[in-house]
Design a protein around this nucleic acid. Structure first.
Lengths: 212, 212
DNA sequence: TGTACATCAGTGAACGCGCGTTCACTGATGTAC
DNA sequence: TGTACATCAGTGAACGCGCGTTCACTGATGTAC
């Protein structure tokens, strides 16, 4: 009846809307996201997430096999958002422009800055998650956004090895900058907000040899 | 008497050699390093480390205030090694050469590949370690190696803002590449071992505009 | 439309576990005389 | 050189804690007739 809180972007779960609780699955994921953000990866517990969602500590097990599956859910959802924001960034500029490439990177950095805990979690999942094909696929998807922007910029096909290589070089830089930024949030604060200049410079440096 | 196991590289601890145990402090750090490597950051416990060192679970508290301090010890030691290897890398090539710059990056990547767990720990310490001045200083020290190589390459002083900026751009790339490499160790394996080409290409791209 | 039944989301109590840390202690080592 | 004492690294038992997970259950919702 009341689907005021139903997020139709939620993937891989039948949207059966309000049953008993409403949508406990989504609320648990949101709770874990907050916990990870506040206490870092591994700083969450099923019990605490259940508490925050207002259910008993056994309830989560109706939606997730174990604690690892909840974490995977958080990561999956985060990757969806990351990709969406990268695409929005690219779309905000002329297709094929250097700015479009830089904007993809900017979206990436912004995401890391906005949710450093989740960002770390996404790229730090190493315990019981070695083989999660859906997550790997979503990672590929994110990289695909970079590849597409680079391909458009170089007027080449995304499958071109040169595009792949340059896209990877760019992604490495953006990834590293994102991590360094959230690691040193105290120190560099003021002098470091010129992401955009850096992103444009590095994009030009990496793409130029074939563009100019 | 028997200082067969005394490592004179151990910092910040008076090397009083074999007391009861030998050098429990160092052995605990080694045990935790292994645990972190095997089970990931947060995958260690004081109890398990003590067990591996062959002492009771209370013994570690004679050397460390709490579990956080042990972790900080591991990170501190790892950063010493990382810096040493970066310096060795730089020293293996002509001072001021592009190769020297790339070699610093190569040492960094090699370290990440050799000890991915510890590498993650070094850059993921976010719980009770916000203000650990010695660790921040060691991070600065590592960055300083990059800065020095870049400065030599550009024939500028390390304090030059342009040197700082280019060094940071380079470090971001190397850092990102290191993380991506250890995250995707399964996938890219074969096609990705050409670190050196990447490092030379990116070093040239970032340093060239002022070199050529 | 009404009733009987199957489904299944959430309960709450309980379990065993390993952990971090403290505590009074022991006994080997180093030091002063 | 020998003895008395202070130091302090390591012991082992104990504590309270929160966690992950299971289990039999309850009661609301959806469905078949």
């Amino acid at each position: 009846m009341s689907d005021e809180t139903s997020s139709q972007a939620a993937p891989s779960v039948t949207p059966k809307a309000s049953y008993h609780h409403g949508d406990l699955r989504a609320q648990l994921i949101a709770a874990v996201r907050e916990l990870v953000e506040t206490h870092g990866p591994d700083g969450f517990s099923v019990a605490e997430a259940a508490r925050r969602a207002g259910v008993s500590s056994a309830a989560p097990y109706k939606h997730f096999k174990d604690r690892h599956e909840i974490l995977r859910g958080v990561v999956s959802e985060a990757m969806d958002r990351l990709r969406a924001e990268m695409e929005i960034g690219a779309a905000a500029h002329a297709p094929g422009s250097l700015e479009a490439v830089a904007a993809v990177g900017q979206a990436y950095v912004d995401f890391a800055r906005a949710e450093p805990g989740v960002f770390r979690l996404v790229f730090g999942l190493t315990e019981g998650h070695e083989n999660a094909p859906d997550l790997l696929a979503k990672g590929e998807g994110c990289f695909g956004v970079v590849v597409q922007a680079v391909a458009a910029c170089l007027s080449l096909t995304p499958a071109d090895p040169d595009v792949q290589r340059r896209a990877y070089l760019l992604w490495s830089f953006v990834h590293g900058h994102s991590f360094l930024t959230i690691d040193m949030k105290h120190k560099v604060a003021a002098a470091e907000i010129n992401d955009w200049d850096y992103l444009m410079e590095i994009s030009r440096a990496i793409l130029a040899p074939s563009v100019s």
